[in-house]
Simulated scan of single mutants.
Amino acid sequence: MKRSILLKLVLTASAFSASTIAVAAPVCTTLPQARWMTPDQMKARIARMGYRDIKVFAVSGSCYEIYAHTRDGKRAEVYFNPVTGAVVQNNVD
């Protein structure tokens, strides 16, 4: 009996962990990476948008993701559509 309760707890915890991970990065595009802007093109676009001091530039799922600062110095975690360059999610501190 203890074994089945433990198994249920582990499975429940795993389900919550997986759902948290899935929600963490938004879906930015369904197009293949061959259709994406190159990292250099995207970085230039991001700079024109006013983001500065990019600490991280990475592919996160179907997005380009950055950790940087806004024009007014606030920290930002931003997800971009890699095809259009549009901001999909913007988390500013």
Rank of each mutant, 00 (worst) to 15 (best):
M1G: 15
M1D: 14
M1A: 14
K2N: 10
K2C: 05
R3A: 13
R3Y: 14
S4V: 12
S4N: 12
S4R: 12
I5T: 13
L6A: 14
L6F: 10
L6T: 08
L7N: 09
K8H: 11
L9F: 08
V10K: 06
V10F: 09
L11P: 00
L11H: 06
L11C: 08
T12I: 12
T12R: 10
A13M: 15
A13Y: 14
S14Q: 05
S14H: 05
S14A: 11
A15Y: 09
F16C: 08
A18I: 15
S19E: 00
T20E: 11
A22G: 11
A22T: 06
V23A: 15
A24K: 12
A24R: 10
A25M: 02
V27A: 12
V27I: 14
C28E: 02
C28Y: 01
T29L: 03
T29D: 05
T30F: 11
L31G: 01
L31S: 15
L31W: 03
P32E: 04
P32Y: 08
Q33R: 10
A34V: 14
R35V: 11
R35P: 03
W36D: 06
W36E: 03
W36I: 04
W36M: 01
M37H: 15
M37I: 09
T38V: 03
P39H: 12
M42T: 02
M42D: 02
M42E: 03
K43M: 13
A44D: 14
R45A: 15
R45I: 04
I46V: 12
A47L: 00
M49S: 05
G50L: 14
Y51V: 10
R52P: 02
D53I: 00
D53V: 02
V56H: 08
V56Y: 05
F57A: 05
A58H: 06
A58L: 07
V59C: 01
V59D: 05
G61Q: 07
G61P: 06
G61N: 10
S62Y: 02
S62D: 02
S62R: 01
C63E: 01
Y64V: 08
E65F: 07
I66D: 02
Y67C: 00
A68Q: 07
A68T: 05
A68F: 06
A68H: 06
H69Y: 11
H69M: 12
T70Q: 00
R71Y: 09
D72F: 05
G73F: 04
G73H: 07
G73Y: 08
G73P: 07
G73M: 10
K74T: 13
K74Y: 13
K74P: 00
R75S: 15
R75F: 09
A76K: 04
V78E: 00
V78T: 05
F80N: 01
F80D: 02
F80V: 06
N81D: 14
N81A: 02
N81H: 00
P82L: 09
V83Y: 06
V83W: 07
T84W: 04
T84F: 04
A86V: 03
V87I: 14
V87Q: 04
N90A: 12
V92T: 14
V92M: 06
V92A: 07
